[in-house]
Structures are given as structure tokens and as C-alpha cells.
Design a protein around this nucleic acid. Structure first.
Lengths: 159, 159
DNA sequence: TATTGTTATACTCTATAACTATA
DNA sequence: TATAGTTATAGAGTATAACAATA
């Protein structure tokens, strides 16, 4: 199916690959991502955690004393990009940058009780948001979707 | 390695909703989206079309004489955001803003022969990029993924 | 009055490169 | 030298609000 370019072209679809956007995973992925992200923000409210801040806080709660570099790696972003996220969470009083004896370069991220409670509250809000947004899908479909998305991640996150 | 320095702190999961990120569709969707978008750009090269420009061009080729407002609606973005996209495609010589007799407010977007050829070339590149990126998944899985993503879209794009 | 295209502006998220202070 | 955190900067992509031309 090579694209032969004849000087005369009666109908594009006769000679050229048909660019039906709906068939692309990328297009559907982007559209679905925009919808889900927007719904996330609406669900958590104007003063709620942004998606990336929620993810970071959840990992800090799950892995207390994680360093910023480790957290950035787990989130798949650069260290530099994590600074603003940690600033935001520290500003809210949800975590602290703790000194680590033995290596004064690193900051251990420690969730505060307030942060743990905020994470629990946000977790319930996020779960409710996804349950509502995906309420027209069966549990099997949702599980399958998560599994297929992780398959893409597995390919792209090969270190 | 990462740290739980306090093995004996009561596990947060005992008292609070468990915030395991991997279970969220939103988190997996975002991570997969970032990977696919990055791979798209690499596949089309530094001077290749950006994802959003490809989508817009594909629709203009599929629906010649579409107006900017119609195209924005189909893409799910604001009219204002489409201006830069159309500027880019027009600057590349891929389409023209044509006057419409009867309503001098609107611009009909008409693909040029160059634009149609570029769309065909880009389409092959995008197909190859997705085939390669998703080569570890079966056709059934890819079809299923597209179908599930469109289910989210169907919910979010209810006008 | 309403709509189309446009501009100005701002916000989110991300990356690269260079700096600092440690190691 | 190498690493952790930081800063500065830039680049995508998006949205809102207002404007001029036109309906």
C-alpha cells in the first residue's frame, strides 16, 4: 500500500490512506484523557488537589520518606518538574521536606497527619468521580481498560 | 531504594481508603497518553506535524470546506484555539481559508494538493507509529481499547 | 442581538539546561 | 566527578473574555 501519486486525482480516498481519526488509539486516548482530567478537576473543586498533586501525595502517603528523585521517577516526570508539586503540597501542610542523616543533599518527603487525612478525603472524591464518570461501563470493562492502558505503559516505560 | 523507614507505623491502608494509583483509570490514562504522544512526535520527526495539527488536517481532508467553528467542535476545542492550528497548516501550504459566498464571516477550509499528499504521508507515519508502539498487543486488544476509550468519550462529549 | 474568526491573556503540565550544595 | 534539589526558561496545549466584521 504505497502512496502512488498520479498527477490526476479523482478522489483522495481512492489512492491515499484514509485518515479516519476515530480509528486511531492516540486520538481516542487524547480525547478521553481531556474529558477525564476535566471531570477530575470539577469533582475535586476549585480549591481541590490537581491531578498531579493528588498522584504525588498518594505516593508520599504510600511510601513515606521517599526522596524527590525517587518520586519523580515513579511519576515518570523530571526532578525539576516535581519541585512545584512538592512546594504546593508543603504549602498546604500536607507533607514536609525532612533532612536525611547521612546525606544532606536529599529531602525525605514525609506526609503530615493533615496530609494523610487530605489524601484519604481526596481518594474518596477521586473514586467517586471515576465511579460516576464510568458508571455506564461494567466493572469488567473498567478492569479491562485499566489493564490495556497498563500494557501501553509497560511498553513506553521500559527503562 | 525507596523507603519505608517506619515499618511499625500503622499502615495508612488500615484506617484510610487505599490510594493505590495503579487502580485509577485516570492515572493510567494520563501515563499512557504521555507515552503515546511522545512516541507520535518522535515518529513524525522534528519538522513533522504535531498531533493536533495532524488531527485537524485529517478532518479538513475528510471534510473539505468545513468551517473553523465546525472543525473546532469536531475536535472538541474552542474556536480560539483552532486559529493557531489553521495558521500552522496554512503556513505549510496544506490548506487555504476560502471565502464563502453568502456569509462573509466564515472561512471554508480547503485542503491543497500538497496538504492532501502530506496528510497521506503523515497517515502512514502515524499508522506505523501506532502499529509499532502497540505491537505487543493483539488486534483484538487494540480494538477493545479503542472501543472502551470511545465509551468514555461518549459520556464526556454528550453535548 | 447573535455568530465567526481573531487577539490577548493566563493557566496547566512538561522538558532542558545550568546552578548550588553536597557527596 | 557525580548526584539531589533548585531555578530559569521555553514549549505544548488549553480556556476565557473581549473585539471587529458580518449576519
Amino acid at each position: 500500500m504505497a502512496g502512488r501519486q498520479n498527477p490526476r486525482r479523482p478522489d483522495p480516498e481512492d489512492q491515499f490512506p484514509m485518515p479516519d481519526l476515530e480509528a486511531y488509539i492516540g486520538y481516542n486516548l487524547k480525547r478521553a484523557y481531556v474529558i477525564l482530567q476535566k471531570d477530575f478537576r470539577e469533582a475535586l473543586g476549585a480549591d481541590g488537589l490537581a491531578p498531579r498533586d493528588f498522584s504525588a501525595l498518594a505516593l508520599v502517603v504510600q511510601f513515606p520518606n521517599i526522596t524527590q528523585s525517587e518520586l519523580a521517577r515513579m511519576l515518570g516526570i523530571e526532578r525539576s518538574g516535581l519541585v512545584a508539586i512538592v512546594d504546593e503540597l508543603e504549602g498546604r501542610g500536607y507533607l514536609s521536606r525532612a533532612a536525611v542523616p547521612g546525606d544532606r543533599r536529599v529531602h525525605a518527603l514525609v506526609p503530615t497527619p493533615t496530609g494523610i487525612a487530605a489524601c484519604a478525603r481526596a481518594t474518596e472524591q477521586v473514586k467517586a468521580h471515576e465511579e460516576k464518570l464510568l458508571s455506564h461501563m461494567t466493572q469488567d470493562e473498567i478492569q479491562m481498560l485499566g489493564s490495556l492502558l497498563r500494557k501501553i505503559r509497560a511498553r513506553g516505560e521500559e527503562t
